[in-house]
Amino acid sequence: MIKAVIVMNDQGKPRLVKFYTFQAVEKQQELIRSIYEVLRSRANNVSNFVKMDSLFGPDVRLVYKTFATLYFVFVFDGSENELAVLDLMQVFVGTLDKCFHNVCELDIVFNFNKVHTILDEIILGGQVLETNSSEVVRAVDEISK
């Protein structure tokens, strides 16, 4: 399952935080900081996977991708396929792009609720439910009506 979805900027400031297993707030902040330290230390043209055993326990991986000023981070366990999660990230970013017409960091900053709604349509309780971004956009539009 997916353990967490985190969006943060290149300064390490979280923009979207969603954990699918309960973590206390302090722990969340600590995890975000450690993840940021790891990501910051990585060069540009390297693989997008990081093993996260030390932070989340065995067999937990992390996929991240940089879009402009933002890091998108998905944390997941052995029941997910690494490349598929990478695709899922693309779906999520694509959906944001469609919803906000050329999404930028500020859109995510100022649309806290909507971003959560979008994410909830894609992932529920750590399970991937929808991978078609137009479907997600349609559902989100309907909810916002």
């Binding site: 400031k13 979280p14 923009r15 979207l16 935080v17 707030v25 302090e26 969340q28 902040q29 806290f112």
Partner: peptide, 10 residues
Amino acid sequence: TYLHSLHGVD
């Protein structure tokens, strides 16, 4: 909720 989620406020 915003402060809780992104700034770690109880």
